[in-house]
């Protein structure tokens, strides 16, 4: 089987700072793959490079068999990569339903079809009862789910989730974990997630990449990486001691 996404020796520098340092990994279709690492490790930057927000300074990215580095953010999405933002940014002045309709319209020519698709997705993410609320009035957990819903509405093959569980209570985290597991099992959706909540990573991911100062310091199954001395030292130390 060939990889759905291949990131090959990708680097991204901001002036002097090397935010992403020759990172390589690949994700198989249908896999749930996690990226972890301390704050400032370069996880979001790596996402932005994949999503076309930044061009990599070095390295290549291939998705579904073709190069996507240098592609625009909207072009990347049209090829089948949906994303959420770490700092959530739903369209505040639109209703919950309209937020999702915007995404659904990408591959649907008319609003009625997009609305039907949006309703399905809203139900999946427990947001259907709140569909007519203005997005700006939602609580943080709801806004995070709305972001996931909106990205899902574009029918991605690969979904990039940037810390969608940060700031949620354990029960809410478990709910999102269940939703993502279900999506992955039922639709074969491939997911790349950045996550700090280790219990979510352990429950979801088949493989984990650990970033530190922009570079890959470990990769493997969740059980493997949490035993790596380098990972414990740079990232998990505090949590393991707790």
């Amino acid at each position: 089987m060939t990889a759905l996404l291949s990131v090959d020796a990708v680097s991204k520098r901001f002036r002097g700072l090397v935010a992403v340092d020759r990172v390589s990994f690949s994700i198989m279709p249908g896999e749930i793959y996690a990226v972890i690492g301390p704050n400032g490790a370069g996880k979001t930057t790596l996402f932005n490079v994949i999503a076309g927000v930044f061009q990599p300074d070095d390295g290549t990215i291939a998705f579904n068999g073709s190069r996507i580095d240098g592609e625009t953010p909207d072009g990347v999405c049209r090829r089948g990569i949906g994303r959420t933002f770490q700092i959530v940014r739903p369209f505040p002045g639109l209703s919950v339903e309209d937020n999702v309709i915007v995404g659904a319209l990408l591959h649907r020519p008319d609003v009625a079809a997009a609305r039907r698709h949006a309703h399905e997705i809203l139900s999946r993410l427990d947001l259907f009862p709140k569909r007519s609320h203005l997005a700006s009035t939602l609580t943080l957990p709801d806004r995070k789910r709305l972001e996931v819903a909106r990205a899902l509405a574009t029918d991605p093959k690969l979904l990039l989730l940037d810390e969608v569980m940060a700031g949620l209570r354990p029960s809410e985290t478990d709910r999102i974990v269940a939703i993502l597991t279900e999506l992955n099992r039922e639709t074969g959706l491939t997911i790349l997630l950045i996550e700090h909540v280790m219990r979510a990573v352990m429950a979801l991911a088949s493989r984990v990449l650990v970033l530190h100062h922009g570079a890959k310091i470990a990769e493997g199954t969740p059980a493997q990486v949490v035993r790596e001395p380098a990972v414990i030292e740079s990232y998990l130390g505090a949590e393991v001691l707790e």
Partner: peptide
């Protein structure tokens, strides 16, 4: 369809672009 896209751009252009 275009009206929805315009409103998305008005509300948040980078987020709109992330939706293709």
């Amino acid at each position: 369809r275009m009206g929805y896209f315009w409103q998305a751009i008005r509300e948040d252009e980078p987020a709109a672009r992330a939706l293709g």
